[in-house]
């Protein structure tokens, strides 16, 4: 038995559109997904906005009924044995909501401890430990409304550890945090990993997935397009090198021209402050630079570098330029 077993899971949302002539619109958010997560593994779910990651996590945390397929957590069915699962898992959905803003951090934790039936003596001992773990020891008695976004997200992590769950579902735990805040949360996740918790993580930060996850599944439009270790996924694009070109405003026809060059595999544009960075994947390496520069003749060009592919490059190739 695997810790998490997902078989052909599907979820369709029905929404009504239009005010006068109401029509039912169907969105297939998760479209037949199958995977397993082993005990103690840190597994990443990656994919562009709207790929179905949050929908997946909601179904696994018993908060959403699947349209089709099955999912078992520790051998319990997410639909029919929801309560057995709930006391054994913890989850957070990224962002600041989901806490009582007018209560102190400690009072929030106390209430959730009783919702999870944690013994009061255990609660008394665990709250200071958890506040320590997430770096909120000296702010725990303050009202949550005065917390920064990062503090709220860390309090969420403490909240979800109160009942010492075996499995954690972390949906974008570092969403919207500054680099330091993100790093602090990643350290907490590493600590949890060393305590042998099974963790399912979603993130839009590829370096984060690369640094933390043992295996990742890339999903796009509700389907798995790749499932492997980060190393293996990078291996898949090792034939390519990545040429990064700083440009200042590229017209769309120039982009199309570059896309159509025979040696160019994919191109993605990253918006930087005043400029953009083109990430061109090509098997030709530095030899590709002269023809690229001549294609960019009409555009102001800055620094040009060639580097080894990263997980992000593998990802971009899989989901076709969307980030």
């Amino acid at each position: 038995m695997n810790t998490i077993e997902v078989r052909d899971l599907r979820r369709i949302y029905k929404t009504t559109v239009g005010v006068v002539r109401r029509k039912i619109k169907e969105v297939v958010a998760v479209d037949g997904i199958t995977f397993d997560v082993n005990r103690g593994e840190l597994f990443g779910l990656l994919g562009p906005n709207g790929a179905g990651k949050t929908t997946m996590i909601k179904m696994l945390t018993t908060l959403l009924i699947p349209t089709d397929g099955t999912a078992n957590i520790l051998g319990y069915d997410v639909v029919h044995q929801a309560n057995a699962i709930r006391s054994r898992i913890g989850f957070i959905f990224g962002g600041e909501r989901g806490l009582y803003w007018r209560l102190s951090g400690i009072d929030n934790l106390r209430y959730f401890a009783s919702l999870y039936h944690v013994d009061p003596e255990v609660t008394m001992k665990r709250i200071p430990q958890l506040l320590e773990l997430v770096g909120l020891s000296d702010r725990g008695d303050e009202k949550v409304e005065g917390y920064s976004r990062g503090m709220k997200q860390r309090l969420h992590i403490a909240r979800t550890l109160l009942h010492d769950p075996e499995i954690l579902f972390l949906d974008e735990p570092t969403m919207g945090l500054d680099p330091v805040g993100g790093r602090e949360i990643r350290q907490v996740i590493r600590d949890l990993q060393s305590e042998k918790k099974t963790i399912l993580l979603t993130t839009h930060y590829m370096f984060e997935a690369d640094a933390l996850c043992e295996r990742v599944a890339v999903i796009d439009q509700g389907r798995i397009v790749a499932l492997d270790t980060p190393e293996a996924l990078k291996q898949g694009v090792s034939d390519l090198s990545v040429i990064e070109i700083e440009v200042f405003g590229v017209p769309e026809e120039v982009m199309n021209q570059i896309r159509n060059l025979p040696f160019v595999d994919t191109v993605s544009v990253e918006d930087l402050d005043q400029k953009q960075a083109l990430h061109v994947h090509s098997a030709k390496g530095s030899e590709a630079i002269p023809p690229l520069l001549s294609a960019l003749e009409s555009v102001r060009v800055g620094k040009v570098t060639v580097r080894e592919p990263t997980l992000e490059d593998a990802y971009v190739r899989l989901v076709g330029g969307k980030v």
Partner: peptide
Amino acid sequence: WNGTLPYLFGTPA
């Protein structure tokens, strides 16, 4: 208002 419902309904309480 607090957005706590998903978290409440995710507990076994």
